[in-house]
């Protein structure tokens, strides 16, 4: 983990630049919206402040629910990368998995001595690659979409045939999960932790569905991971 410590400071600089871009974009769109409102008077002052409040409140719940996973991400890849990756597009769980796949591709385990600066850079690359194509997609598709609002809706409805895309994503995702999880099936506590996490995940998300409690649902992965950590650690200590 020396590599991450050494590079964390530099990563923070790049994180600040990238997050700055997120804020600049939000402000540019906000200015455009307020300018347009002056011209058209489409929305009242009260409604604007209601929109601000709704936006602010809705950010709080999901932010807290990802806290635990974000904490694990800090342990695994450092605070700089966590801020950079969670401040743009990524969600902590997704980023954690992408980091794992990247290190796995090089045949290196997190926390091992082989986890060098080069492998860490590869992980940052993998995490960036996992979401950057979204940017390109919006650049290419959104403008034409606005021009064919009606037509695109029709086309989406027409596409009733069987598509290969869901097969491909299921195959790739299942294959990678199977391939990655075997790395951890070397010790009994890890295997137990795997199943504990899985069963807790199902239990909590089914409970959330039954209670119609969305907050509990969004916490289900975090709860599953914490119980896996406790189970794994307790077993390690018992087995000594």
């Amino acid at each position: 983990m020396e590599a991450i410590k050494n590079m964390n400071g530099t990563v923070w600089v790049f994180a600040a630049i990238l997050i700055g871009m997120v804020i600049v974009q939000a402000l540019l769109f906000l200015r455009l919206a307020l300018n347009m409102n002056k011209k058209t008077n489409a929305v009242s002052k009260e409604e604007i402040s209601q929109a601000v409040k709704t936006g602010a409140v809705s950010a709080i719940g999901p932010a807290f629910s990802t806290l635990t996973i974000a904490l694990s991400l800090i342990v695994m890849v450092g605070s700089g990368v966590t801020f950079m990756r969670c401040g743009v597009i990524g969600a902590p769980a997704w980023e954690l998995m992408m980091a794992q796949f990247s290190a796995g591709a090089a045949g290196v385990e997190f926390g091992s001595a082989e986890f060098t600066e080069s492998i860490f850079t590869l992980c940052i690359f993998g995490m960036t690659l996992a979401s950057a194509p979204y940017f390109i997609n919006t650049i290419i598709t959104l403008k034409p979409l606005d021009k064919v609002v009606a037509k695109s809706a029709e086309a989406a409805q027409k596409g009733g045939g069987r598509s290969f895309v869901p097969y491909m994503s299921n195959a790739a995702m299942s294959g990678l999960l199977g391939y990655s999880v075997l790395d951890y099936f070397t010790a009994v506590p890890s295997i137990i932790a795997f199943f504990v996490s899985g069963f807790v995940m199902i239990f909590v998300s089914n409970l959330a569905k039954k209670l119609k409690n969305n907050t509990l649902g969004s916490f289900s992965m975090a709860i599953a991971m914490i119980t896996a950590m406790i189970a794994g650690q307790v077993l390690t200590m018992i087995m000594g």
Binding site: S72, A193, F195, S197, M201, I202, A228, M229, G232
Partner: peptide, 19 residues
Amino acid sequence: SFAFVMVGLLGSMIFMRFN
């Protein structure tokens, strides 16, 4: 205990997809 984060994540992901 953070050593079990990854295996916990993979476990919850796989079972979530099952579910």
